[in-house]
Design a protein around this nucleic acid. Structure first.
Lengths: 239, 239
DNA sequence: GAAGTCATTTGACCTTAGTCAAGGAGGGCT
DNA sequence: AGCCCTCCTTGACTAAGGTCAAATGACTTC
């Protein structure tokens, strides 16, 4: 197994010597599906690089609901932003979504290397900046956008990523629902609804987008013409 | 007017020479109440330090609603995280909340100084890290917490800040409502409700917390015993 | 001090999404 | 095949907040 950690953005400008140093404090591990890596509130002395599978970052509410903050894909690092805090504590929990492989690194050690390389600092700041932007967008989505809008935006992103109008969902529906901050039931209903409007066709986790432009307009401003007024399962009539 | 920008965390480890350099590209300005500083999507070539008044950062939905992401207080910088992006664009809009005074700095110029000072880099990364954490907490609040919980948490924060159980709200109620992602009406009703439960007393924007421990428990897990079941203005009875 | 403007409150009602409960459907295992 | 298990779907209903509109209050400005 010979992974070049330099393929990860964060490490990409390290020289050979630095790579060796970083690897000295590294530790590779395999996680089973659902295995926990750390929990919200744990001391954060290490950060991670996903080399296989997916890691989900999430928060749990007092009544057990969980909101998925992010799903980290292979090649990406996470929790590296914490090393700059005086008392680093993970603000989220992390566990494997399916079997996964990760490398962990000692934060202190990496900080030391960082103190010699402005270039790596800049890289990290770039990453953090983007993450900041992503979170702001997410807050926007959560407060200013409806569940349907979020769903449509997600479908469009996925379509873009795959490059085809026919694709398979990147994770189990329940997981995607939590990522989009809705219940599985709502997720299912919205998908059904889009399907009934012939905006897409779905069979299991296979989706084909039929009307891209309509989907796009829904992702931006919901209900160009009444999507919700005809939502199923409304009890209006019985009042 | 002789403000030492070093009192701002971001600049605190600059030497005299660097301060001079930074100030060379700086520009002080005064904003009237509601005056816009920049809008979401504008090119982000400058970042800012608030020296008087408050600046609100917000996003606007397609139907005109606005969500306040943050309210920046004097002594704090904002938009500095953007300079690390290749194509920097403000992810939020900014405008003065009441008359305000700010200093703006040229990002490029500052980047140059940064490239000579690891210490300042570390400081920035620390700030960004905290901001990241704050946003995650906010997402948590929005998805996993109710409006009442958010209100209670805000009141407790404010009480902590002031150090007394009697205090005045830090901004107009409508503004606070937008900050907490709720409508002014909801804000008012929740406050009324807390008042009717003798958890607090309110007169205008003066608030006195009566039952701190109950407030605290509401902030954590809502409805230890039924707060919502007795919410006013419900039409249950007419069904 | 009257008029006007703006923020807040209250009331009545509506919409979104969550809850709870009951069925499907698919996949792996024996 | 039959069974179990987990995930997804569907139906009926509830709850939290939003909407709209009117009433009140508070603060300016003339």
């Amino acid at each position: 197994m010979n992974i070049d950690i330099r393929s990860a953005h964060l490490f990409s400008s390290l020289n050979d010597h630095q790579v060796t140093q970083v690897l000295e404090s590294s530790h590779i591990s395999t996680l089973k599906d659902g295995e926990s890596l750390f929990e919200t509130g744990d001391d954060a002395n290490r950060f991670f690089l996903v080399i296989g599978g997916q890691i989900k970052l999430f928060r749990v509410s007092s009544n057990g609901d969980q909101k998925i903050i992010d799903i980290i894909q292979p090649g990406n690092t996470f929790a590296e932003a914490l090393m700059f805090m005086e008392h680093p504590i993970y603000p989220v929990s992390a566990e494997a979504l399916g079997p996964a492989r990760i490398i962990s690194f000692d934060s202190k050690r990496f900080l030391h290397i960082l103190s010699e390389s402005i270039e790596v600092c800049f890289r990290i700041m770039g990453t953090m900046s983007q993450r900041l932007r992503g979170l702001i967008k997410e807050i926007d989505d959560l407060t200013l956008q409806s569940a349907t809008t979020r769903m449509c935006a997600m479908l469009l992103r996925r379509m873009d990523e795959v490059g085809m109008s026919r694709f398979t969902l990147p994770a189990a529906k329940g997981v995607l629902a939590a990522r989009l901050s809705m219940k599985p039931e709502t997720f299912s209903r919205i998908l059904q609804n889009l399907s009934s409007k012939s905006i897409l066709e779905l069979k299991g986790s296979e989706i084909e987008i039929i009307d891209v432009s309509l989907l796009r307009s829904l992702a931006h401003i919901e209900s160009i013409y009444g999507l919700e007024p005809e939502m199923p399962c409304r009890v209006r009539s019985s009042l």
